[in-house]
Design a protein around this nucleic acid. Sequence first.
DNA 1: CACGCGCTCTGACAATTGTCAATTCTTCGC
DNA 2: GCGAAGAATTGACAATTGTCAGAGCGCGTG
Lengths: 322, 322
Amino acid sequence: MAIRQTDQTIHKAAWLYYTHGLRQDEVARQLNISRASVAMYLRKARETGIVNISTSTRMFTDDAIAREIEDLYGLASVWVVPHDGRALDPTAEVPIVGASVFLDLVRNGDRIGVAWGRTVYAMADAMSYADLNDVTVVQMCGNLGAPYSYRPDQCTMEIARRLNAKGLNFYAPLVLTSERLARDLRAEPVIREQLASVAHCNLALFSVGTLDEDSHVVMCGALTAGEIHAMRDAGAAGVIAGQMIDASGALLDCDYNRRVISADLASIRSIGKRLMVVQEESKFVPLVAALSGGLCTHLVVSASLARRLRDERSGGTTDRAI
Amino acid sequence: MAIRQTDQTIHKAAWLYYTHGLRQDEVARQLNISRASVAMYLRKARETGIVNISTSTRMFTDDAIAREIEDLYGLASVWVVPHDGRALDPTAEVPIVGASVFLDLVRNGDRIGVAWGRTVYAMADAMSYADLNDVTVVQMCGNLGAPYSYRPDQCTMEIARRLNAKGLNFYAPLVLTSERLARDLRAEPVIREQLASVAHCNLALFSVGTLDEDSHVVMCGALTAGEIHAMRDAGAAGVIAGQMIDASGALLDCDYNRRVISADLASIRSIGKRLMVVQEESKFVPLVAALSGGLCTHLVVSASLARRLRDERSGGTTDRAI
DNA sequence: CACGCGCTCTGACAATTGTCAATTCTTCGC
DNA sequence: GCGAAGAATTGACAATTGTCAGAGCGCGTG
């Protein structure tokens, strides 16, 4: 009760200040509290998403190159983050834009599939709190025991927390040692339901992984550097939700993939809006693979990746600097 | 070009200030402009919707009575605006809440049907600017020549302007002198298309009118006080988009309605989300009629109307003051 | 080329907001 | 019932922001 009272007061203070445009001292007088409390309540209101301040991301779609990439790759919407000279750390900027775009796409009642990775976690971290209702965040792939803070379940939970949503975690490892065990585990009701529920999402958020020595799957001990090289030789071009894809964006037919527990690509593709966010320059090949496979509908990339994407398809027409 | 440059600068300033949390002087340094200009740009960014500050309307749905009314009348969502003692002008508050709720419901790509009236215009006036894409606002009924600022076309245009949307105005009078002329006019391609396009909306915004001497239809000269009394005797209970409805919310079979040019009730009912906003105490009877006819799915009302609505249906159970 | 128009800059002051240590109020455990 | 830990609140000060007048600048025009 006491909590509800305070909660009500925060709402009222936020309403009077932000919607009616009163000054803090006027709000304080209205609510019979000190101005300092009003300032504190307002901070709380912003932190909890009771008040939402969002900046248009239109400036990132205004670039002509964004239009070109939409056309070349058949995407619904593309955001290009410029390398802004001195201004800001350019790569760190991509997930921030990604978070803004993501929040723009989310609605009450949504069901959201989330994969994992450095980029996804950076987005979660940059995401402001939102006051949504009835939103569910579903983890799209199994877990890794690694000590990273961007483990799949961490990504899911953190995003759910920010959105005031329910988090549906996956209680299975990402990769097992035998194909048989993976098959049996996938058949378990808890796991089967989780996997099935991905297809009922209407929004997905993920990045794409590389096949280098410092790729996640290696760092987390799922694969050795040697194995990953072998896979690259066998045609692997990138990693989506823990699964290897080839250059055409199709699931690679390999032993590793059969041992993975993750939402299959068809389920992911059945989700209406699929936002992919790619920041690292080194992810060009995986990115092209994912786009070829039609895995995403919305894309946030850096300007340099955008230029390379355009040149890849348009055969390198105009190529002047930003 | 010079304009685009400035526009870009406004976006960047807003981004750095609101998303990155820099101070105005830091933003000024980054962009090589004076701090005073930054302050100006930020104001512009807020005014044009490049930056959007919204406050949760949850406090208005938290009321138990809102839940009751949803259940009693089968509505998707109800907002109840309390009469807040000293705080704010209670009736003026309803359209402000309505505007917030409305903005919450709008999405990019939406097609929105708008009716007219004092309340709708008050909402337009209270509505903050939004940076939306590809939104269309459709006028749902014909025009009146009255010198009011809340003429149907004014409502449509003003809302379109605030949402950065395209406004589709209706170029016909609301009511004609003969039934034949109304029929002929409705058959005109321009008008027919306009009317048909209402059915393709996915969001509607309207209020409901009374049948008093000071009702809009009288004030605007569409009907005389005498005629409106006669209509009330004939079973008219309220006015929706310029048309008379009976107590069950059905179109009243009368000469006047046959002379009106407006979206028919079936089209309106085919729209997914229909937000009705009612502020005046005197609109209780029309409100009940509209609800009986299932004309809206979302409702914003004052606390006293809410209490009367509950008592109307639940047979007057608990009836303590707020 | 001078002119006026519209825009931005500068510098300064006033208004508003953020912050924090000190204080008051709550809520427990004993 | 008492006292202490902890949370909420406040007053006062510091930092930030809003605003304004006057100056400077670029540009299109007569």
